[in-house]
């Protein structure tokens, strides 16, 4: 998003990114880039993509999101998709998109819990 409208918040080593309701393809690509840069800049270990505002997920969006999650893994991080609407979940599945390899949570709260306990487990000092 050239106008920088995506919001990136860092909480406890976790980046919270809110995806806008109806991003065009360029915005989706820019979002990916911004997210990866922010992960590196903040040395974040976890990423929450809040998609609760997103009304449509098509194959391009799904591909970019699962790619982003893969890239975050390569950078040593963990991604959780939070807040997918029921209508979007039904449509995405029927379309045949495989977002199933990505961790998901009902909302940002639960995504945060998931990441905090997952990261705690890997980082606890004896």
């Amino acid at each position: 998003m050239a106008n920088g409208t995506i919001s990136v918040i860092k909480v406890r080593g976790i980046l919270l990114v809110t995806v806008p309701p109806d991003p065009d393809d360029i915005a989706v690509c820019e979002l990916q880039e911004q997210v990866l840069q922010a992960m590196a800049r903040h040395s974040a270990k976890g990423l929450i993509l809040d998609i609760s505002m997103v009304e449509t997920i098509d194959s391009f969006f799904a591909r970019t999101v699962s790619e982003t999650a893969k890239m975050v893994t390569l950078m040593g991080g963990l991604t959780v998709l939070a807040g997918m609407r029921a209508s979007v979940a039904i449509t995405t599945t029927q379309l045949g998109l495989s977002l199933d390899k990505t961790l998901t949570a009902l909302d940002v709260d639960r995504a945060m819990d998931m990441l905090v306990s997952a990261l705690d487990g890997t980082e606890r000092t004896p």
Binding site: E55, T56, F60, S87, I90, T91, L95
Partner: peptide, 17 residues
């Protein structure tokens, strides 16, 4: 309804792309 709207919009997104 909301789910059908989402289905139709998603198909339109695929086909216009």
């Amino acid at each position: 309804g909301v789910t059908d709207v989402t289905r139709i919009v998603t198909a339109a997104s695929e086909l216009t792309r």
